[in-house]
């Protein structure tokens, strides 16, 4: 395999609040190869978005990276020994698309000037050249009448079209990595399907690596090569998409897949994972899924080491044991 594009190494992120220190990320490690699509799934508060923010250098007071680092093509990008010279990578080689395109576009600027701004800043193009490039970009993300639409404001675009504009901005500088944080959550399902197809197409054409953050397992199934499952600030399982869906090893992953209804199965009852994730002010020392785990025991109260399998890694000493009985 080629050398990794992005490496996240034992990353810890804390947020200092009045109630105490929230340990949002507790030792996250990941690596991403060029052109690869990695899905990060997990519930709200599991640390998916904080991971993305750390990679983008967006962790700011009261948050801080307390341990570990993020490396971009081998250079430390974020963390204690971050290389300041590596900073121009953000926004140029690594870009990000957010969930809500209405709040991430400036309502007072035309779409054209917002896209051109990025191009002028990062590629140093002249204004007319940047505008021509912006029009090309709009066409490439499937917006017709690009020339005319450049002079329109965000409110003149529908939700799906706005997300296309965000993606156009995201790929404006031909990045190597696009981080998409719940890019289709605010959209209707038919529009969602269009955006996901667009992302897959761009990836193929540009050789783009994508980190896709989502809570929807169906989206991961269609678009990703690999998945990382997060729970309470840690990665509990990573692996190839097919392997994880076919044979999930961690009890949480098993429960997550079984609690997702399909369009054909005739299940009478969904598998529900009782309880809720632990608070991260005082996260448990051992396995954080233990209170909700049907097969956990005394031995799970100690920190869980990552066990390496043929298709991935799992932080569970009982990995592979079926956790949820057939008849619940």
């Amino acid at each position: 395999m080629t050398s990794p594009l992005l490496e996240i190494d034992n990353l810890h992120v804390c947020f200092d609040t009045r109630a105490g220190t929230v340990q949002a990320l507790r030792g996250v490690s990941l690596s991403l190869a060029p052109g690869e699509t990695l899905g990060i799934v997990g519930e709200s508060g599991s640390g998916k978005s904080v991971t993305a923010q750390a990679v983008m250098g967006l962790i700011d007071v009261p948050g801080r990276i307390s341990e570990g680092e993020v490396r971009w093509q081998g250079r430390p990008l974020a963390g204690r020994n971050a290389d300041r010279d590596a900073r121009p990578v953000w926004g140029k080689e690594i870009t990000m698309v957010f969930q809500n395109p209405m709040t991430s576009l400036n309502p007072l600027m035309t779409v054209g000037s917002q896209i051109s701004e990025v191009i002028e800043l990062h590629l140093g193009l002249s204004r007319p050249a940047a505008r021509r490039r912006a029009a090309e970009l709009l066409s490439s993300v499937g917006i017709s009448g690009a020339e005319r639409r450049l002079d329109q404001y965000p409110h003149e675009f529908s939700g799906g079209m706005r997300q296309r504009v965000m993606i156009a901005m995201g790929i404006a500088c031909e990045p190597k990595l696009l981080i998409a944080d719940e890019p289709t959550t605010a959209l209707d399902v038919t529009i969602q399907a269009q955006i996901l197809e667009l992302m897959a197409e761009l990836q193929e054409k540009m050789g783009l690596a994508i980190v896709l953050i989502t809570h929807d397992l169906g989206i991961v199934a269609g678009l990703c090569h690999r998945v990382a499952v997060m729970y309470a600030g840690q990665i509990v399982e990573t692996g190839l998409v097919d392997a994880i869906f076919e044979n999930p090893l961690h009890p949480y992953t098993q429960g997550l897949i079984r609690s997702t209804p399909g369009l054909d199965a005739e299940e009478e009852r969904l598998t529900a994972i009782e309880g809720a994730p632990p608070g991260l002010l005082q996260p448990p020392a051992g396995c954080s899924f233990l209170p909700r785990c049907p097969i956990g025991d005394k031995g799970c109260e100690a920190p869980q080491a990552m066990r390496i399998f043929e298709t991935g890694m799992v932080a569970c000493r009982k990995a592979g044991v079926p956790a949820w009985s057939e008849a619940l």
């Binding site: 399902v189 169906g218 269609g222 869906f245 369009l263």
Partner: peptide
């Protein structure tokens, strides 16, 4: 258009 959580089918 509904994505389904089965990689082989979904593709």
């Amino acid at each position: 258009a509904v994505p389904i959580a089965n990689p082989k089918l979904q593709r």
